[in-house]
């Protein structure tokens, strides 16, 4: 990557997204435990870790599906507590879900605006603004490289790549400040990965803070400025691009010696877990 690192984190500036000692628990089990992170606009944070390490919990928290217990979640310096995905979206945080969150039997434009439909008219007659919704959908899809799409066709008729584009275009449209991308666990084709990486870069260049949950250290190193390694709900490593090269990162994520040693140290630090 030849792009210089953005210097948005200059002295005094508040980070766009900040997690302070944040804990999410299901009953007595902590899915995330004292996780901290600072992320500026124009930066990409890659979240890496094994299955069950808390990656999905982090995504669910940022997108408003889950609420945190202790700790603080701050967006542009203001503490927030989302009670629904709608509230997260209203704060400019949008998510690309691993299942893409697409209703196959609904049309493309209905999918695009699902949960945040534009309306016109006053209450008893308040109705969907179909024309606007369709235009915006077509424009947003063209922005991610899918041109000439019929917004009225069912989402089930889209090719896999187009469905991915739809999910990304939607998140780019609604995510004004923070974009959360959770990659599917199933293998993706090269072009699908390309779409995802392209969207990460696009969002970063537009000044968004990007949280990129991925399974591939190589791809992560390609686009990431920071790397948050999770293990058993704890931060196993919070590295910057200068700290590691792609090979180190791979070894760390692949459960190599470093990670095992790290985990062992952590266990010793908190016995009884």
């Amino acid at each position: 990557m030849t792009t210089p690192l953005p210097t948005a984190g200059a002295a005094g500036a508040t980070p766009l997204l900040e997690l302070r000692d944040l804990t999410v628990s299901f009953g007595s089990v902590a899915a995330l435990s004292r996780v901290s992170l600072q992320l500026d606009g124009g930066q990409v944070c890659c979240v890496l870790g094994e299955n069950g390490s808390g990656k999905s919990t982090l995504v669910a928290l940022l997108s408003g599906l889950l609420r945190h217990g202790e700790g603080e979640l701050l967006v542009a310096g203001r503490p927030v507590r989302f009670r629904s995905p709608g509230q997260a979206r209203a704060q400019g945080i949008a998510t690309v879900w691993p299942d893409l969150a697409i209703a196959p039997l609904m049309s493309v434009w209905r999918n695009f605006f699902l949960g945040a439909e534009p309306t016109r008219g006053v209450w008893p007659l308040r109705r969907l603004d179909v024309a606007t919704a369709q235009q915006v959908t077509v424009r947003a899809m063209a922005r991610v490289g899918v041109a000439g799409l019929d917004p009225d066709q069912a989402a089930s008729g889209l090719q896999a790549g187009e469905r991915q584009s739809l999910a990304i275009a939607r998140a780019l449209h609604f995510g004004a400040r923070v974009l959360v991308i959770d990659e599917p666990t199933t293998p993706m084709t090269l072009s699908q990965r390309g779409l995802v990486l392209q969207s990460v870069v696009t969002a970063r260049d537009e000044g968004l803070a990007v949280v990129f949950v991925t399974h591939s250290p190589q791809y992560a190193h390609l686009v990431g400025d920071r790397f948050l390694l999770l293990a058993r709900g704890r931060v196993a490593g919070n590295l910057t691009r200068d700290d590691v090269d792609a090979d180190d990162l791979t070894r760390l994520v692949a459960g190599g010696d470093e990670l095992s040693r790290l985990t062992a140290t952590l266990r010793r630090a908190a016995p009884g877990r």
Partner: peptide, 19 residues
């Protein structure tokens, strides 16, 4: 209506999008 379609056709997606 959109919420009805989504709830019945893709409940998980609907929840993720805040329907």
């Amino acid at each position: 209506g959109n919420a009805v379609f989504a709830t019945g056709g893709a409940g998980q997606a609907a929840r993720e999008l805040g329907v």
